[in-house]
Design a protein around this nucleic acid. Structure first.
Lengths: 296, 296
DNA sequence: GCGATTCTCTGACTACAGTCAGAGAATGGA
DNA sequence: TCCATTCTCTGACTGTAGTCAGAGAATCGC
């Protein structure tokens, strides 16, 4: 039933935080409070902008500033102005900071190791698989879909990744031409929409709806980042775009695809799309699909 | 490899605490800090001893006392002296406290529900299964085995549960007679040992080693609590008892069992035991096994 | 019955996490 | 060039979590 995963989730949460919460508390063992330790981790070996840190850790700017100052006083990080924009500042680890970070890392690693030590090899693989599955699903569950301007930098980046993938997968490659600016007009309200799926501050998927000349809706540029595949994000995006199309007043959606994209084709068929005749002159398309939104 | 579950574990921990840590923080939404909220939960509908609370939550006695006082002032709990022992105190929820507890519970439930809401039914079941598997394995991994006196209350309770199970499973029932006090002598050092597996403050499994009249070691009273089965605890206990036998100077161990206990038999065979002739006059035994500890 | 022990409570702290308001430098757009 | 905005930092707070020492009542073991 529906209640089961919820109960399991809550139950698991208690068990987990009792046992493995120790992995966080391990930061404490380093003689440094949690805040600075997490920060040390998040800065990473290559340094990062203060602004990014603030967003990633969800900290108050004043608080973060003080934490950084503390680490700086201990000689673990260096904070310098961003040469590209004097308002921003960049934090990097010093040699001492990198050592310290490794120490905390080792500590956490040892704790994790000790935790699984009593398990047999088989049980460890089962645990590994279970946690990986759970994480993938949880990550996918917390992805949020939101409409954006098709020319917003993140949108452009996502579509470019999509085109790059097409170029790698199509036997003859793929030439986008001026597709991005050309699409943008079609994805703009009130006749279309472009949607980004965001998780962990990353773009996980994208897709858009536009109106074909004959008034029917078309779904285009649907793409899921490889790192996010296998958790039903494609189907969710598809459903979301269909709902958007319906909201825009359509009761039929179409889409085209290339025979190479077998996962996509099976997803469309699974979602109730049926094959139709060529409805456009897209030179890369080999298959055309249509779905009635009222369930017909 | 060995490193993989460790990496997954640590990775999962980050993802989990970022997303689902919200389930804890949800306590905060009740206008009450985490400490008192957790306490409200742990007291439960039936009330509980303060001492138990302290152990379960791992709190300082002074701190706990203050937390309880706070909840008492809010009219949520009542703390009264234990009639059986005037030093101890018992905490119970008032009607208002029960309402408040339910409110927090609902809140957490809703959050968990919202978390899995974007997933399809199939994905939810997969998540459910993955989390349940992970929890079972983690619980098993944190079980600790330790030698105890065979007449300690927990040991007696465990063996009694074992006998009860035999009585239910054997076609003709099982009569323990004076087995418990009789065993105790054999399990006592220096010739024997009795081991309890403890997890979550519960007894998860038990088992003992004693010396047969002919000088060979015998493993007896091995039992895993039904709630803890399916995570390899039996095999772990068996291995542990073999190691204990070796430590006591033996290089051969024997054990007997009833044909009804099929899981046990397959575990013994899997662990390298081979069937032998009857070596004792146990009226309930139908199968007898032996294993050389040096690997022969 | 008496001393040692167990159990809870009080007082006096400390450290950590985080918020809020506002100042000041750098930048971008009209 | 100037005004609004962005970004970081400082000062002044608040609340929560938790520790430590010790007092006082009840109980246990002899």
């Amino acid at each position: 039933m529906d209640t089961s995963p919820v109960a399991t989730l809550r139950h698991f949460n208690r068990a987990w935080s009792q046992r493995v919460g120790a992995l966080d508390a391990s930061f404490l063992g380093s003689g440094r409070p949690l805040g600075p330790s997490r920060l040390l981790f998040e800065i990473g070996p290559d340094g990062v902008g203060v602004r990014t840190l603030r967003r990633r850790l969800g900290l108050d700017s004043g608080y973060l500033s003080r934490l950084l100052r503390q680490l700086e006083d201990d000689g673990l990080v260096e904070v310098v102005a961003d040469p590209a924009d004097g308002r921003r500042r960049l934090a990097t680890l010093t040699a001492k900071g990198r050592r310290e970070r490794r120490k905390v890392d080792d500590r956490s690693e040892r704790l994790a190791r000790a935790l699984v030590a009593p398990l047999t090899q088989t049980q460890r693989s089962r645990l590994d698989e279970a946690l990986a599955t759970a994480e993938r699903l949880l990550r996918a569950a917390t992805v949020v879909l939101e409409p954006v301007d098709a020319l917003a930098p993140e949108a452009v980046a996502a579509v470019s990744s999509y085109f790059d993938e097409l170029d790698r997968r199509f036997p003859g490659g793929f030439d986008p031409g001026d597709a991005i600016p050309h699409d943008a007009a079609g994805f703009a309200p009130p006749y279309g929409v472009f949607v980004l799926a965001r998780g962990d501050d990353e773009v996980a998927a994208c897709g858009g709806v536009q109106r074909l000349p004959d008034g029917v809706a078309e779904i285009k540029r649907m793409w899921v980042d490889p790192a996010w595949r296998g958790a039903g994000l494609g189907a969710r995006m598809l459903g979301h775009l269909e709902a958007e199309a319906a909201r825009l007043g359509h009761d039929v959606v179409r889409l085209d695809t290339n025979s190479t994209l077998v996962e996509a084709i099976s997803m469309y068929e699974h979602a109730g799309y049926r094959s139709i005749e060529r409805y456009n002159d897209n030179p890369y398309a080999r298959r055309w699909f249509e779905k009635r939104l009222d369930g017909g």
